[in-house]
Nucleic acid binder design. Sequence first.
DNA 1: ACAATAAGCGGGGTAAAGTCCGTTTAGAGT
DNA 2: ACTCTAAACGGACTTTACCCCGCTTATTGT
Lengths: 204, 204
Amino acid sequence: MTVPLEPFGKARGERADAARNRERLLAAAREMIAEQGTAQVTMDGLAERAGLGKGTVFRRFGSRAGIFQALLDDDERRFQERVLSGPPPLGPGAGPADRLIAYGSARIPFLLEHHAIARAAVDRALPVPAGAASMTQPHIRVLLGLAGLPPDRVYGLSVQLTAALEGPLLLYLAQDEIPAPPAPDDPDPLVDGWRFLVERLLAD
Amino acid sequence: MTVPLEPFGKARGERADAARNRERLLAAAREMIAEQGTAQVTMDGLAERAGLGKGTVFRRFGSRAGIFQALLDDDERRFQERVLSGPPPLGPGAGPADRLIAYGSARIPFLLEHHAIARAAVDRALPVPAGAASMTQPHIRVLLGLAGLPPDRVYGLSVQLTAALEGPLLLYLAQDEIPAPPAPDDPDPLVDGWRFLVERLLAD
DNA sequence: ACAATAAGCGGGGTAAAGTCCGTTTAGAGT
DNA sequence: ACTCTAAACGGACTTTACCCCGCTTATTGT
């Protein structure tokens, strides 16, 4: 009776060579972005750099935007862990208002750091910058519910707050408009605005 | 002493043939969208339909997204007039809170009607869905100022509220998720959410 | 070991966006 | 009317995302 002993952590049916190639492609993509920016990442160029065929790139990621989403997901997973099981107030243990504020305060710098990649992951074909971003809205929804807002408003507000939080960095702020955080612990106007918005919204 | 007598209303240096061709292209685009949807509008197809060369299309609109922005601008101008000189509370004459709410209540159906075109006008190359949308954020900023919010918060909040208002329809809602307004004067959850958000934000 | 097979791979092919530059023409001045 | 010039035009060309499908290979069961 042989127990397969799945190493756990890699997708069930993924073949070893496929996993290896995916890593190669992601690494190559990171290099190209670091060297020349997201705009210069072409599917042919990426394939060549990784020493693979173009078909393989599409098999892995589906589309150009998919590559950037995969890169985001990587970092996003770590971010998610801080939210789900890190110390409060970002993690569990604080009140919903504090957690909402903490979420925005962590999310905004995260998106700032990943701004170039996040923008490149937006694609007119699919509705949501997938993977990563899909965490923000459910999380906000849960916290709004815990905060005691009228239940029939919670979903709609979670959509609008998600847009308020991520929209500026995905849609409305140009690259050079992005406020460089002057000092590490300086007040960031976006973070302040978010805090103000949440405090007012949840004020009894 | 000859006075040129500019007819006023058409851009200064635009040649008559250029204006005529722009109209032709916009008309052709509208037809194609009505018949087959935005996805089927190709630059070659559009040029051929309008009986023009492809170079002309790009000279006029710069990019594919530019066409949809031009289509939006057309309707947007009319919308803007209602805001700038129509009856209150959408137009001038009401208090800032009422005007903000009225703006959202008018803006959301407007974007719903134009959803397909508005989405097609979003492009990864440029920061803002140009033209049209550029009106929302300044307008909100002015009203927030009039409402007496702390001046150093007004700009940031206007960015976030703009995203809260338009983001859902541009980014986060898929085509088939769009809630069809059940009856003409039924409560729209998006509008209600907006009202709730603004009321809470401006509550003294 | 070996065979069977499902998954992965590769690169040529297609379609559509965007560029370039030689040609044409509207409109102003005379 | 005629000339002149800046603007507009057109379509071939380039680049790039994305598709297709015959070939290769990792994996599993015997």
